[in-house]
Design a protein around this nucleic acid. Structure first.
Length: 410
RNA sequence: CGGGGCGUAGUAUAGUGGUAGUACACUUGCUUUGGGAGCAUGAGGUCUGAGUCCGAUUCUCAGCGCCCCGACCA
């Protein structure tokens, strides 16, 4: 992508209505735009990050046996009434609206009920189980207070996986498989070493749940971490005796997994016939990751005072090619490198703008692409290009062929 | 939902009961070109409604919106 053609621009200052670091940086760098409190649009750079996160999550969900679907955001009240979750007294963050004929509708905040209804039409025998189904879709929650930029919004993109098992034992086995898959996801997006499985309250679903908490001062939760074991416990269920000797941290909940048992299969009648012909209730689990929140968490955790610092796996581009000066030979050379990188399928943002070096470097730092390659008269006369790693600041000098070699094999 | 704060140009801000100022961005021109350049130039603004007043961006009330703390987060 030629940066001169990119419709978004960077901003020197953060908007006054953004206080959180993730939103300040993402807005300044042109990754997201705020529509209203708790609702952000994704702009080209931000969408590329989001799509990379989405791809990683999808790959791991498929690897753990998930089958992808896409359900509607519009929700039929009748099944929610059957499960007892339509009332605002039970679920207080519904967005509800009306049909023109007066009938009510909900906007989906979660999808247990509609998916269970779909599954009742598909599952009837023990031979049909176990199964796991997931989707990546917008959720709507009428939060009393949106906060922390893209970490807690009223509309957000979520991956939700649901598992359907025959026995508690089979369920627990699958539950652990998903937990392992979550660990892979957080490793791959670059926050693995600071994210810990955390015992937490189960809300209305069950007594306990497992959260994945990323250590970060911007987080809403407080956890007690047993670093030797690599596990933590949420303050909400921790007792005094548990927490002695543990590290106290603020943390962001980047994922959670719940045992649902027969909470939904019972009221909605999701049953199967076992080998003996006896009718049994399906044992369920649900497993969520907020994609925008994960992106915001990465921004919070890995940025520095100059701007964003994306891990390579989720960066909007792998290389930021920065052309300096007005020298025609330099431009020609930069164009050629851009062409060759594109040809080698290296994702590259090419700063071909007619701007000064200081501005380009500042923008490059703010946007946070993992590697910056500088094309200038200096580089041309040396025959080597300066390659700067965003995260570490390490600089190496490579010839064009070395550069392409390095990038096309990484 | 309880408490607090704030709405001035694209962005960030100053100020005033009587012609609204600055910086960045933007237009145009010249100079400049390795860490957000310089000079000149032009354009652009008081959240909405009601009230008080000769006159309201300023004061009062209401609405809408935004932020923060707390509660909530199935």
């Amino acid at each position: 992508m030629r940066q001169s053609q990119l419709f978004t621009k960077t901003r020197r200052e953060a908007p006054k209505d953004e206080v959180s670091k993730n939103a300040q940086l993402l807005v300044r760098a042109g990754f997201v735009a705020k529509e209203m409190a708790g609702a952000y649009s994704y702009l080209p750079l931000g969408l590329r990050v989001l799509k990379k996160i989405e791809t990683i999550i999808r790959e791991e969900m498929v690897a753990v046996g998930g089958q992808e679907v896409l359900m509607t955001a519009l929700q039929d009240p009748s099944i929610w009434k059957e499960s007892g979750r339509w009332s605002d007294d039970v679920v207080d963050n519904w967005f509800k609206t009306k049909l023109q004929d007066g009938g009510e509708l909900g906007l989906g905040h979660s999808h247990e009920e509609p998916l269970v209804r779909i599954m009742t039409g598909q599952v009837s025998s023990y031979r049909d189980l176990p199964r796991a189904v997931f989707q990546i879709q917008n959720k709507f929650r009428n939060e009393l207070r949106a906060k922390s930029g893209i970490l807690r919004g009223r509309e957000f993109i979520m991956k939700d996986l649901y598992s359907f098992c025959r026995t508690q034992e089979e369920h627990e086995h699958y539950y652990e498989a998903v937990a392992a898959s979550y660990k892979k996801i957080f490793d791959r997006v670059g926050i693995g070493e600071r994210t810990f499985r955390t015992k937490a309250a189960g809300g209305s679903f069950s007594k306990f749940s497992d959260e994945f908490q990323m250590l970060c001062d911007a987080g809403e939760d407080i956890i007690y971490l047993d670093r030797a074991k690599g596990e933590a416990i949420n303050k909400e269920i921790a007792s005094e005796s548990d927490i002695s000797g543990l590290e106290e941290h603020k943390a962001i909940e980047v994922g959670n997994i719940f045992n649902l048992g027969t909470r939904f299969s019972e009221p909605l009648g999701l049953k199967f016939k076992d080998e003996a012909g006896a009718e049994q209730l399906v044992i369920m689990g649900c497993y969520g990751i907020g994609l925008g929140r994960l992106m915001g968490s990465i921004a919070e955790a890995l940025s520095d005072d100059k701007g964003l610092v994306w891990p390579e796996a989720v960066a909007p581009y792998r290389v930021h090619l920065v052309m300096l000066g007005e020298n025609a030979d330099v431009k020609k050379e930069a164009d050629e490198i851009y062409r060759e990188l594109e040809e080698a399928k290296v994702e590259v943002l090419y700063d071909d703008r007619d701007a000064r070096a200081g501005e380009k470097f500042a923008d490059s730092d703010l946007i946070g692409i993992p590697m910056r390659v500088v094309v200038s008269e200096k580089a041309l006369s040396a025959g080597k290009f300066e390659c700067v790693e965003r995260a570490s600041g390490t600089t190496i000098h490579l010839s064009l062929s070395e550069l392409i070699e390095k990038l096309s094999h990484a």
